[in-house]
Design a protein around this nucleic acid. Structure first.
Lengths: 102, 102
DNA sequence: ATCTTATATGATAGAAATATCATATGATAT
DNA sequence: ATATCATATGATATTTCTATCATATAAGAT
């Protein structure tokens, strides 16, 4: 581990929230602005903005402003192979697991 | 994403706790039983057991019982490349980040 | 200039995760 | 057989995270 525990905690914590995961999953289909993300997910605007900010902080999404719209794109370079790795891990070790809330 | 949001949440949530991260980091050096983990980290026994259970549920560590001792080993096949990937990501995108609690 | 639309920010109540406490189980030693 | 050591489990107070609310900023549109 090259970085501080805090940094790993921030990174993994960003991926341990179902709403953020849904946003990530949506952005795999392509760029979206905040309003579009709200429409596609059914989430509230402020919640989406808060969560996008956290994802951006972690370098998981990139933002580009176009007029009054702000488009968010997934960092595919990281997220794609990460998810692939996790999926393979789960297939091998977690297929049986049922997630009870903590 | 091939699995349920709940499963990803469980997986990433397991890695977003500083005590579990420290345990993982310790186990990179080799197998340890619970008492040894407590000694090496300074953590309480019950807390360590609870956290080891969660890591085991996620397939991040494997346990083998030897008499009254239970040895925990890291799932290096997953954790090593995972951490390598995250370290590279952080080096590229998060070098500036300072983690304020939430 | 003012209104509307798009997005962001700060504060906080409520929800969820965590460490700790009390106790249980299981293994070995005496 | 019982005392001790190693580990696990269940309950809960406390800490931490989250969604929501109220409001701000900024860009078009009228």
């Amino acid at each position: 581990m090259k970085h501080s525990l805090d940094t790993y905690q921030l990174f993994f914590g960003s991926l341990s929230n179902p709403n953020r995961l849904q946003i990530i999953n949506l952005l795999r289909k392509g760029k979206r602005n905040v309003t579009e993300i709200c429409q596609d997910t059914g989430f509230e605007q402020t919640m989406v903005s808060h969560n996008l900010k956290r994802l951006e902080t972690c370098g998981m999404v990139f933002a580009t402003k176009v007029g009054k719209y702000k488009y968010y794109a997934l960092n595919k370079k990281t997220i794609r192979p990460l998810m692939k790795m996790i999926d393979e891990h789960m297939h091998e070790y977690c297929e049986h697991v049922v997630h009870k809330k903590n």
